[in-house]
Amino acid sequence: MSETLNVPTMAECMAEGRQPEILFWVGSAGSYDDRAKKITRAFVKILNKANVDFAVLGTEESCTGDVAKRAGNEFLFQMQAVTNIEILNAYEIKRIVTACPHSYNTLKNEYPQLGGHYQVQHHTQFIEELIHSGRLKIENENTFKGKRITFHDPCYLGRANNVYEAPRALLQTLGVEIVEMKRNRKTALCCGAGGAQMFKEPEKGDKDINVLRTEDALQTNPNIIATGCPYCNTMMTDGVKAKEKEATVTVLDVAELLATAQNL
């Protein structure tokens, strides 16, 4: 697990007097959560492979405030936003790519009004661009050949921002069989983690949302449940465990699938 990744920080770029093409916004989950860190690393491997000139904020990055805002703490959200915007603007950031739909939504939709104007992309959109422009080639198209993959739409990517096709287009390049859940795209069911639910026990009910969503996914008889959000990843992984299917079904981020298909 310790091949070296090339991860320049903005501070280093600044010291060298250069401006990277994109800022990779890692997000709190991608920085600290053990499962999400693997997604972060997979995405960086892809960036390195495609020779993308990128940087991260590193220790200067702070929570976007998404969960605070959705928990109702507008105050904390705006404090976080203003602090982040100050740093982003000081580095004159123009383009941001993130593997977290929550960061994506907040940076893209909620920062502009507070003075943060950036072009923001989800990592699946950015990778799709890399493939389109020929900067990234899928080398081992057969890694996942014949596998059945179902894609779980993260709410904050799909319904919240109408990005449904980029992740699917990437899966298509892997030569896999994509099987859609009954509830997909606009009617996709939430994994249960949004709106700060990730950080609390669910209210009283007769089932956990992630279990219900995992049942949706399992109905398609998949080998792999793909998603594009660290929270969804955790929830679906837990769901698969709850259904005792972890021996046959894996939950992976689209970036992880692509990195694996590249032998990265």
Binding site: V7, V26, S28, S31, C63, L76, Q80, A196
Partner: peptide, 24 residues
């Protein structure tokens, strides 16, 4: 969760200075 964000810039109780540890 909110006091974590206030104190260390993440919803989990991890040190802000460890934010880039994933790299290594």
């Amino acid at each position: 969760m909110m006091s974590n964000i206030e104190n260390n810039g993440a919803p989990w109780p991890y040190n802000q200075m460890d934010r880039l540890n994933w790299k290594d």
